[in-house]
Amino acid sequence: MYQNNHINVRNLNVHFDNNHVLKNINVEIPDKKITAIIGSSGCGKTTFLKCMNRLIDSVDGVKITGELLVDGENIFDPKTDVTLIRKKMGLLSQRPYPLPMSIYDNVAYGPRIHGEKSRKKLDHIVEYYLKEASLWEEVKDRLKTPAARLSIGQQQRLCLARGLAVEPEIILGDEPTSALDPQSSQNIEQKFLELKDKYTIIMVTHILRQAKRIADYLIFIHLGEIIEHGPAKEILENPKEKKTKEYISGIIS
């Protein structure tokens, strides 16, 4: 039923040297929804996320089998242009990593590396996406200052704007609020709820309450295996598997 979805995962297996980190992952991710990947730390949820934009490539000794289809194309196919895959996805990592340049250049970085040169267009893009990330009002008078001077909450919103500026279809969040204060976390969550009409959002979180607040769809991973996945409401209110029940009630964490 999800034939036309952006992301389909089939028999995905990931090994780090001799560790079998992800085992036979099969899942389809619904479009224009917030999908939360939950599970205890070390279960492989971040690895799963890193597979989607192939940042996993930079890890030493990694071996991947199976297929991860993005718009019907297997991204692990050696012929795939990895930069095009990544352009389709914006990433918010655990801690914000502003690039070593000004606020303006951070947002303009993506469009620029993909060949946009027109100053006028870039100005427009920067303003548009900073507004989209609700950061414009706070920084419009100091666009030329180094991004590192922003507060950590502002940096994370800058990273969101930077990610949106390459016009992705998908947003990946790797525990994007874990380094932020409660107010900034709430800003990001709010932002995700606003953005889900336009983007498919996949986020890893270890905060069950966060998943309850914003997720439409849940994937529960335990020790490298998907135990259960489905609409968030169903899973939270009526988990089918014993492990899921235990996780939700806090027995395993």
Binding site: L99, Y109, I113, R162
Partner: peptide, 19 residues
């Protein structure tokens, strides 16, 4: 992670190194 920030925007490895 800093390099990943650039790579995840679709930069090539060389662009990430250069910029």
């Amino acid at each position: 992670d800093l390099k990943n920030a650039s790579l995840s925007l679709g930069a090539t490895q060389w662009q990430t190194i250069k910029y």
